[in-house]
Simulated scan of single mutants.
Amino acid sequence: MLIGTVTAVGEDAIRKKDPMIILFGEKATKDIRTVAIIQSFEKEAGNIKLEPGHTISFDEKVYTIKTVGSLVNENLNTIGHVTLSFSEVIKDDQIESSIYLSPHELPEVVVGTKISYDD
């Protein structure tokens, strides 16, 4: 399991009409920080491998992974980046750096929120 703590929430990071969240590690650029949620890890990600059926939690709210894009694990392990999509998977338009989650509702995210990646 990998646990991240939210250290910053960009001014345009959460929009109710767009059911997705972009997460980045502490090394995110200034421009990325405006549209992303920044997370800091207690330990280096290193070798986490997320797959369908695993879960991601925001504090106590648990989401089930439905689909994992081909770039997700490498990006999460190297730069702390992943895009979380809280919508149905569109087979022909899947984002390769995205994890599609269920239920399809945005979590409450504030500075201090714990994000648990359960592999």
Rank of each mutant, 00 (worst) to 15 (best):
T113F: 06
V111T: 11
A36I: 00
G80E: 00
I48R: 07
E44N: 04
I99S: 00
K43C: 08
R15M: 08
T64Q: 12
L84C: 02
Y100T: 09
L84I: 00
G25T: 00
H104I: 13
G80S: 03
Q94P: 11
N75Y: 06
A8W: 02
N73D: 04
N75G: 06
I79Y: 09
I3H: 03
T67A: 13
L2C: 12
H81R: 08
T7W: 05
G80I: 00
T5W: 14
F41Q: 03
I90M: 09
Q39T: 15
H104K: 15
T34P: 13
N77Q: 01
Y63F: 04
E60Q: 07
A8H: 10
V82A: 12
G25V: 02
S102D: 04
S116V: 15
N75E: 01
E11D: 09
S57K: 04
I115Y: 02
K91P: 09
Y100A: 05
P107H: 07
N73M: 12
T67N: 14
L71K: 14
L101P: 02
V9A: 13
I22C: 12
N73K: 15
Q39W: 08
L71M: 11
E105V: 01
G69M: 08
G25I: 11
V82H: 04
E88K: 15
G80A: 02
I38M: 04
E108R: 10
T5R: 06
Y100R: 01
T7C: 01
S85Q: 06
D18N: 10
S70Y: 10
I90V: 06
T7K: 02
E51P: 06
I14K: 03
V9G: 01
I37V: 09
K43L: 08
I14R: 10
T64D: 01
D31G: 15
Y117K: 11
S70E: 15
K91S: 13
K43S: 10
K49F: 13
E11K: 14
R33A: 08
D12T: 14
A8V: 02
L101V: 01
F58K: 05
A36L: 00
E42R: 07
G80L: 00
I56T: 03
D31W: 13
L50T: 06
E96T: 06
E11N: 07
G10M: 03
E51C: 09
L71N: 14
I79S: 01
L50P: 04
F41R: 06
D118C: 15
Q94H: 09
H54I: 01
S40H: 14
M20R: 11
D59Q: 13
D18Q: 10
V82R: 07
G112Y: 10
G69F: 00
P52I: 08
A13C: 11
I32F: 09
S102H: 13
M20I: 05
S87E: 07
